[in-house]
Design a protein around this nucleic acid. Structure first.
Lengths: 339, 339
DNA sequence: TTGTAAGCGTTATCAA
DNA sequence: TTGATAACGCTTACAA
């Protein structure tokens, strides 16, 4: 009948230790910490003193196990190298922090497979909800969410299929910036695309739609490369584009990295921007306002997408309906000297 | 005597469910998953089938509670807006992922207080170890680590006091880039500093030491501002510096953001870089190679710092000694057209 | 307002 | 190689 108490890991005090020190029961400690108004001021005071004295830190795993709520949210993003997602994370963080939730960050490296693996792995933590980037995911993904009744909010884009999304229309943004180039009098407008994720392809769709509407679409003016974008790649793609189509008079680059690289290359080659070739990017990263000439681009409400998505998710976790299934946070054309 | 089984949260299968389905005991399932070699191939096979059939996902909290090991590492960084720390995170992630560890990311927003709060909050997850940025932390910080016997690795800098660090000498790097400006014939070399965190101040120390050695130090050539750095701030600081000291012939900016902003401002003002004013930055971010003129800066092994620190930490968690207490991963001067 | 008892899902211990 | 049992630290349900 010999009990063999195991060795505690952290060596820290447990709730029972605190209870003993305060001369109350464990459940009173629990309540003093989590629902203070349910405990009389005197006891509460005693408990808090014992907590301080013992430097008590509650165990999240025990709490999660007992309550079946982890107060944790899983955030899946395609990359940590991209300012866009970091700004989004910052927005999410601000809201979750304030609500006492913690976030688990999963980096899918732009791979739907990886993303599925991450979901499976992080499911072990029993997150209370999930924030996702984009609308397209591996086949079993949504099944898993549904089976577990896991609230999810989709960020960055819009869908009209019952999923809760916070973002803006990538396609409309792509079309808008293309129309701007048309208005500037450009007629042979090309598209430079890298990474080729879902959002880039929608910007491409928007670009095509705008040119179709103007009767100026030319498939020979599209350059697409699935490898990750970078400034170097922008420079290389500019070379390739001008070599293939010297008549091209404007380029919509799928993001600012590409555009800045292309712009720098134009400077080196002495190509007049925007007279000979207009350039536009996407996202309005910090350097875009500072390069020469300053880059025309599309500002996207990344931080707001993150914070709003987090708020919606918390509402769903609490069993309430989200404010609206779709939240369109819009975008803004930043018209500068490069166009 | 009525048992009242609670409602499960996720509705997912438990290890007991798997055990029942496979016709074995729960502990056998546990072993089949965690120490497969201890279970006969037949049973292992049966268990794996049941796992698949039930889409079983182990509960991390139960595991942590029972085993007192969370297989989780806490990473504390000062900012998510700074590429430097993201690259570091990427390095950490690659190592931890491969080892089956997950990371909890805490963003201290450059505040020691916040950092302490984060440590306290994340301690609830019983992390097996901690990765820290910089050497200076709030007073109770190291006490807490010691009391809990939590392995910790300090990233980005070097210390000779028994703590395990992975980084490079910020001071040596600051001195090296300053000496380079001296070698270029510059004599009134200024310093532009923002954020003023620990690392910036050490770069400043290096700058001062180099100028002292040359007998050219001039306190009137230092401009320091504690607010977060940005390109706009670099531009503004350049204006202020030249207004105060038109004789200044070179500027060492504490990071590339500042330097790129200053460079852009020089372009606007028609100041010849590097003839009239040489510029140098720090970190070698992507745009630095692409601005005009390309920016002289210091390349730092951020990703390697992250991955090496993570490896050291895993070793300590396993009870082994780290390879070396101090790992100097060095830095590299990137001499470009701006100097 | 406070306490008791049981249970959350897993692993450590010991026995077979 | 496999299993029974207790234990991890906390919270829910119910009782006082």
């Amino acid at each position: 009948m010999s009990r063999k108490p195991r060795i505690r890991s952290g060596g820290g005090a447990t709730m029972h230790d605190v209870a003993r020190a305060a001369g109350v029961s464990a459940i009173t400690v629990s309540r003093a910490l989590n629902q203070p108004q349910q405990v009389s001021p005197q006891l509460r005071e005693k408990v808090m003193q014992a907590v301080d004295a013992l430097a008590y830190v509650p165990s999240r795993s025990a709490r999660t196990l007992a309550s079946a709520r982890s107060r944790t949210v899983l955030v899946l993003i395609p990359s940590l190298d991209n300012t866009v997602f970091l700004d989004t994370l910052a927005g999410i963080e601000s809201v979750l922090d304030a609500a006492g939730y913690q976030m688990l960050i999963g980096n899918s490296h732009y791979s739907a497979e990886q993303e599925l693996l991450l979901l499976r792995a992080y499911l072990q933590h029993q997150p209370d909800g999930v924030l996702l980037t984009g609308l397209t995911h591996a086949a079993p993904f949504e099944d898993i969410l549904r089976r577990r009744a896991l609230p999810a909010v989709y960020m960055m884009d819009l869908a009209d299929d019952g999923r809760c999304c916070v973002g803006f229309s990538q396609e409309a943004a792509g079309a808008a910036i293309t129309r701007h180039l048309l208005e500037r009098g450009k007629r042979r407008i090309g598209f430079l695309g890298a990474q080729l994720d879902e959002r880039v392809m929608k910007r491409l769709d928007g670009y095509r739609a705008a040119l179709d509407a103007a009767g100026l679409r030319d498939a020979g003016l599209e350059w697409l490369d699935p490898s990750p974008s970078s400034m170097r790649m922008g420079a290389d793609m500019l070379d390739a584009a001008l070599a293939a189509r010297p008549d091209c008079d404007a380029l919509f680059c799928c993001n600012d990295d590409l555009a800045i690289g292309a712009l720098a290359r134009c400077q080196q080659l002495g190509i007049a921007v925007p007279q000979r070739l207009a350039l536009a990017g996407f996202n309005d990263l910090q350097p875009s306002a500072w390069c020469t000439p300053a880059l025309t681009t599309v500002a996207t409400p990344r931080r707001e997408i993150g914070s709003h998505a987090a708020r919606q998710l918390l509402r769903m976790i609490d069993g309430d309906e989200p404010d609206a299934l779709q939240t369109d946070l819009g975008f803004q054309l930043m018209l500068r000297r490069s166009s």
